[in-house]
């Protein structure tokens, strides 16, 4: 953040952009949803656990989509699950981010040939960060979350209109609910 500390007659003050201040706060309270579909969920649990300790980046898990900023697609996504995930995504408040964790969520991975598995989370959700691995280690997941932080840092918070209207360019699912 490029801000200047100035000395005034009644004490010091900081000159900077409001965007930067807001983004600083947002970046350091990145809450992710406690939601895993397959093997990667185990590594997701370990990431929140005592050794990796995602808490030190201000990342804590929330059980409900309405309180979380990041949806981590942790594991294989089946067609039966895809509409449920889309529903969860639409319940999250803007601004929201999606991480595709592991090969299955990236492209279908090992199960690309399977009749039941969606070949990548980006076929029905806008994905921000892809993390390779089967499953990725907790270090990789933390790096993915830090990439989201970097993205937040650069966002023009005030100029951008955050609405819950659907982006027509986003992939969609038919017959939701």
């Amino acid at each position: 953040m490029d801000a200047m500390v100035e000395q005034g007659p009644e004490g010091s003050f900081v000159l900077g952009k409001v965007d930067d201040l807001l983004n600083l706060a947002r970046k350091n309270s990145l809450w992710y949803m406690l939601f895993g579909t397959a093997c990667c969920a185990i590594e997701l649990m370990q990431t929140g656990g005592p050794r990796s300790d995602a808490d030190r980046f201000g990342m804590v898990f929330r059980a409900t989509p309405r309180q979380s900023d990041t949806l981590i697609l942790a594991g294989t996504i089946t067609y039966k699950m895809a509409s449920r995930i889309r529903l969860l995504y639409e319940q999250m408040a803007e601004p929201k981010y999606v991480i595709a964790m592991g090969s299955c969520a990236n492209t279908g991975g090992l199960f690309q040939e399977s009749y039941a598995v969606v070949n990548g989370g980006d076929l029905f959700l806008p994905v921000d960060v892809y993390i390779p691995g089967c499953p990725p280690r907790s270090e990789s997941l933390i790096e993915g979350l830090m990439l989201i932080q970097q993205k937040i840092e650069k966002e023009p918070w005030l100029k951008k209109a955050w609405t819950n209207t659907k982006n027509p360019k986003d992939p969609q699912i038919e017959g939701l609910l």
Binding site: Y79, K80, A82, S83, T107, G108, Q112, Y115, A116, V118, N119, G120, L123, F124, P171, Q172, I173, E174, G175
Partner: peptide, 28 residues
């Protein structure tokens, strides 16, 4: 195991997958 509106029985040897399911393409 499969959704209610799924077509076909996958473990039959002559099973062919549908091309899209609810707008999601089944091949990448």
């Amino acid at each position: 195991l499969m959704p209610e509106d799924w077509v076909g029985h996958p473990l039959r040897k002559d099973y062919k997958q549908q091309e899209t399911y609810r707008g999601i393409p089944t091949t990448r």
